[in-house]
């Protein structure tokens, strides 16, 4: 299968760090405004999600996702070597973040 390939540098970080949902993001740039290290910059193309310029500087504080006006538009992604697992006490089943066929989400709201 013929496919074009490109001269590109290696990925800058082990993970994407910040992932935008293209359907949900309104390009309001709130995340750009609150980020302490300027991980993102506004997209020169109007209406598009910010560009993730410095993912390597992300502190994983989560303020971009917390202050995003559209829930779910931003996902903060931990690198694979920073993910933890858990065991269901009754059944002994083992789960982890990122697994195939994960259990259904726990939708219980926090205390805040």
């Amino acid at each position: 299968m013929a496919e074009k390939a490109y001269l590109v540098p290696n990925p800058k970080t082990p993970c994407k760090v910040i992932v935008f949902d293209l359907d949900l993001c309104t390009a309001c740039n709130m995340c750009v405004d609150v980020c302490r290290t300027d991980v993102m910059v506004p997209n020169p193309e109007e209406g598009k999600p910010p560009l993730v310029l410095y993912p390597d500087e992300c502190w994983f504080c989560g303020c971009c996702a917390a202050d995003c006006p559209v829930p779910g538009a931003i996902t903060v992604e931990y690198p694979l070597n920073q993910r933890v697992g858990w065991k269901r006490k009754e059944t002994g089943e083992y789960f982890r973040i990122g697994m195939k066929n994960p259990p259904p989400p726990n939708t219980k709201p926090p205390v805040c």
Binding site: A65, K87, I97
Partner: peptide, 24 residues
């Protein structure tokens, strides 16, 4: 959740199905 940097832990783990009533 309220501790610094823990809101995304709560959100990320819950979204992945972690349930403190059942899971260790």
């Amino acid at each position: 959740y309220n501790e610094g940097k823990c809101r995304i832990i709560y959100d990320t783990y819950n979204k992945a199905g972690f349930d403190p009533d059942k899971d260790m």
